[in-house]
C-alpha cells in the first residue's frame, strides 16, 4: 500500500465521518437555529430509525426491504419527533438549558424502553447486496486503496439530504416561512405566520432526517439502545462550530471535524484524537466564538 493511498484512504474516512456527522447534526442545527432548542434525545431518534429499519427487514425480503426500511425510519421518526415537540418541547421554548435537561430525561427513558423491547445486545441489519463489498484499487498510485460501498452510499445520502433541505429552505413556500421565523420571530408572527406550526414542521423534519440517518448507521454497526450516544456529543460540537443553526456552517463544521479526526488518527489513537478535537474546538472558538458562519443581527441577546 503506497503512502499516497494511505492518505487518500484517510481522507476518505474523514469525509465519510463528516457525512455521518452532517446527517446527525442537520436536525439538531435546524431546531437549535430556529427555536433555540437543544434536543438531547436526538441520538435516540437515530436509534428509533435504526430499530424501525431492523423491524422492516424482519418482515420484508432483503434487497428491496432496506429501501422500505429507510422510508419507515424517515416517516416513523418524523411522527415521533412531532409528538415529542407537541407534548414537551413546545412548553420549554425560550429556556434552552431546561430543554436540554428535559430531553436528556426523554433520552434515558427511550434508551431503557429500547433495552426492554429489543434487549441490550445489538440487532444486526444486514446490508442489501448492492451495498456490500468495496471498491478496490489494485494498481497505480492508489494501489491497495479500498473504499467500502456502504460508506460511499452514506456520503451520497448525506449530500442528497443536505441538498434537499437547502432546496426546501431556499425554494419552497414552507422554506420561506422558516427563513422568516428564523430571522425575526416576532415580526413573522405579527405578519400572520403561525410560528408554532413552522416550529413543529422543522422539528419533525429534523427528527425524520435523524431517523433516516439511524437507518443508514444501522448498515455500519448493529443497532443498540445506546447507539445515539456514540454520535451525539460530536454532532453538538459540529453545531457549535457551525454557528447558530446555519446550514452552510454545519456543512463546513462537519467536514472540519471529520477531516480533523481522521487526520489525527494517522498519528494517534481514537481517544487521543477525541481530546485533540476538543482542544481544537476550544481553540477555534477563541477566534470565532459564534461559529464559522454567523448571522449578523441587531438584537442584543441572540435571536
Amino acid at each position: 500500500m503506497t503512502e499516497f493511498a494511505l492518505l487518500t484512504g484517510q481522507a476518505f474516512n474523514g469525509i465519510s465521518l463528516a457525512s455521518i456527522l452532517l446527517l446527525v447534526a442537520l436536525g439538531l442545527a435546524l431546531s437549535f437555529g430556529l427555536m433555540g432548542v437543544i434536543n438531547m434525545a436526538h441520538g435516540e431518534l437515530l436509534m428509533i430509525g435504526g430499530y424501525l429499519t431492523y423491524m422492516m427487514l424482519q418482515v420484508l425480503p432483503h434487497g428491496i426491504g432496506y429501501l422500505f426500511g429507510m422510508v419507515a425510519a424517515f416517516a416513523g421518526t418524523g411522527i415521533f419527533g412531532a409528538i415529542l415537540e407537541m407534548t414537551l418541547i413546545r412548553r420549554l421554548y425560550g429556556r434552552p438549558l431546561d430543554t436540554l435537561l428535559a430531553t436528556w430525561g426523554v433520552s434515558l427513558i427511550m434508551q431503557q424502553g429500547a433495552r426492554s423491547i429489543f434487549g441490550p445486545i445489538g440487532d444486526e441489519v444486514t446490508a442489501p447486496k448492492w451495498l456490500t463489498g468495496s471498491l478496490n484499487v489494485s494498481s497505480g498510485a492508489l494501489m491497495g486503496l479500498s473504499l467500502p460501498v456502504v460508506r460511499m452510499f452514506i456520503i451520497l445520502l448525506s449530500a442528497a439530504v443536505f441538498g434537499l433541505i437547502v432546496f426546501i429552505i431556499l425554494r419552497t413556500r414552507v422554506g420561506l416561512l422558516v427563513q422568516a421565523v428564523h430571522q425575526d420571530r416576532d415580526m413573522a408572527e405579527a405578519l400572520g405566520i403561525n410560528t408554532r406550526r413552522v416550529d413543529l414542521a422543522v422539528f419533525a423534519l429534523g427528527s425524520a432526517v435523524a431517523g433516516l440517518t439511524g437507518s443508514a448507521l444501522a448498515l455500519i454497526a448493529p443497532v443498540t439502545p445506546t447507539v445515539g450516544q456514540n454520535y451525539i456529543v460530536y454532532a453538538f460540537l459540529v453545531v457549535i462550530l457551525g454557528g447558530l443553526g446555519s446550514l452552510l456552517g454545519t456543512l463546513f463544521a462537519a467536514l472540519l471535524v471529520g477531516i480533523f479526526s481522521a487526520g489525527c488518527q494517522i498519528f494517534t489513537g481514537v481517544s487521543t484524537s477525541d481530546v485533540l478535537l476538543l482542544l481544537f474546538v476550544i481553540a477555534f472558538i477563541q477566534f470565532r466564538p459564534r461559529g464559522i458562519i454567523t448571522i449578523s443581527s441587531r438584537s442584543l441577546e441572540g435571536s
Partner: peptide
C-alpha cells in the same frame, strides 16, 4: 430506575 430518573428530569423541569 432509568425510567424513574428520566421522568424526574422531565417533571422537575416542566
Amino acid at each position: 430506575w432509568l425510567y424513574l430518573i428520566g421522568a424526574m428530569f422531565v417533571l422537575v423541569v416542566t
